[in-house]
Simulated scan of single mutants.
Amino acid sequence: MRMHESFIGGGRSAIQPRPLVSRSWQRVLGFGLVADRTGARDPLPPARVEQLRGESPLHLVIDDLARVISSVADASHFLMVVTNGDGIILWRRGDSKVRRRADRLGFSEGARWTEDAVGTNAIGTALEEASPVQLFSGEHFEQAQHPWYCTAFPIHDPRSGELLGIVDISGPALTLHPAISALVETAVLLAESLLRRHHEAALERLRLAAEPVVSAGGGPALVVDDAGWVAHSAGVATRDRIAVPEADRPLAVPGLGLCMPERLDLGWLVRTAAADRRITAHLELGRKPAVEICADAAPWRVALSQRHAQILQQLAGAGREGLTPYELSVALFGDGEHVVAARAEVSRLRRSLGAIVDGSPYRIADGVHLTVTPAAESRAF
């Protein structure tokens, strides 16, 4: 706490904060927060919290998380908190006395615990650093949080690597046990495994429900869920994922060509009359990058972020060898420390363009010819 007072006050201390804590404090000072005041704590209304719970895949495993956390003897001394990817607390479980203490901090359902809202804390700092974080007492920016410890682990969608939220254990500082980090990590690994099993079961239900439709229709086809994950393929080289289907929007799928998805009860049927069409794609760089896709039909355009345009440009340059997640991290961020972020960006790109990008390693898919126009030559649109 003396280290905190010295650092925040601009003085010198014999004890220096850990690099992770120092980076966070610098960010928080840049946000204009003051250590002796609490940040914004305006929680979302209960109806909105309930809506966000229903939208989060974590609602499928929240009870399993709670069982793991509550299985230890000292569970009465801490809280388990689970947020979404925006740092909004959706679930909070634990001892009533600890909950009442947390209420005085605004550490409750519906509150946003990001660094810009409440200063350095394990949830917000884990979101910023994209890694597990444990903070003790005076390492928190706000003095009101100094009586606490907190241990937070990001939890990801095992299908795509996308960040789903943060699992956190917090409690009175002097009750911190050395095994807390291992406990949270174990809970997160279990939850991610269960999420994978839930997804596999959902794909199997979709496959069984769509089997009569696929058999009756004949010809090559894919059955996919609402996120584009393939539940069944017939006459097409199996792919794990295609672009997210939308009603009345053409969908380019290597091996099928340009398709019009058909809505099923639990997903989508994707098929076309021909299976030998070749897809051509043209990437236009510049201030407003876009990719134009054609598969023996009228071309369609997809606007891209600068980051997604950079990914396609890197993959086009890598050729058939492609790029590993580590190599893509180096290409995008200048180092190999952002593998999780690189995977998440590719996942978002594939939701827009689907199977045009293959994985393991990342590369332009077979059957796709991609050309690139540099920024200086791109036409305005």
Rank of each mutant, 00 (worst) to 15 (best):
I155V: 14
G85Y: 07
T373K: 15
E321R: 15
P289F: 03
C294W: 13
I293V: 15
D63S: 07
E185P: 07
V118Y: 09
R104V: 05
L349I: 08
L194R: 15
P43R: 14
L370D: 01
E5C: 04
G161I: 13
A216H: 10
G94Q: 08
D116V: 06
D95C: 08
D95F: 04
F31C: 02
G161L: 13
P299T: 12
P299C: 03
L312I: 06
R277T: 03
Q314W: 09
R287P: 10
R207Q: 09
V253C: 03
P374L: 10
G106W: 05
L44V: 13
P245L: 06
I169S: 11
D64N: 08
R263A: 02
L135I: 01
G286I: 02
V167L: 14
H140Q: 01
P147L: 12
V372D: 12
D86N: 12
I169D: 09
A210D: 14
V346E: 15
V346R: 15
A274G: 08
D168H: 03
P154Q: 12
L164N: 06
V68I: 05
Q26M: 03
R348F: 09
A341W: 04
G30S: 04
A126E: 04
H232Q: 15
A295K: 09
E284F: 07
H199C: 01
S347N: 05
L256E: 00
V302N: 06
R2Q: 14
G171K: 12
R249M: 05
A182W: 08
V253G: 04
R2G: 09
C259F: 04
E142S: 11
L194S: 01
E345F: 12
W25Q: 00
R348M: 09
T38F: 05
V68H: 05
P147I: 14
D157I: 09
R41N: 04
A295G: 14
V28R: 11
